[in-house]
């Protein structure tokens, strides 16, 4: 799951080496925190969060396979 977010983020940004993904596990859900370089923020969020929404959608599909609730946060 963490790897998926990492692959997606690295494919979108200009500075892939600055992509950091952390995983925080809570009772029923997993929170994935995505950090990118300041200049790359727009590339993972997009106009009106369109890119962020797409990332969440793909991650959600992947999580559904493992019956877990996953939240992707961009920090």
């Amino acid at each position: 799951m963490k790897e998926l977010v990492e692959i997606l983020a690295k494919a979108l940004v200009d500075q892939p080496d600055k992509v950091v993904v952390d995983l925080v596990e809570k009772d029923k859900s997993i929170v994935i925190e995505l950090r990118v370089a300041q200049e790359d923020m727009g590339k993972v969020i997009g106009k009106q969060g369109r890119i962020a929404k797409a990332i969440r959608m793909v991650v959600k599909a992947s999580a559904a396979r493992q019956n877990k609730k996953v939240i992707v946060e961009i920090v």
Binding site: L12, D14, A54, M57, V58, A61
Partner: peptide, 18 residues
């Protein structure tokens, strides 16, 4: 096709980046 559209959108962005 929501997930498929999202996947397609992300791949498009990545492939056409710069």
């Amino acid at each position: 096709g929501e997930t498929l559209d999202s996947l397609q959108y992300l791949v498009n962005l990545s492939v056409n980046k710069n």
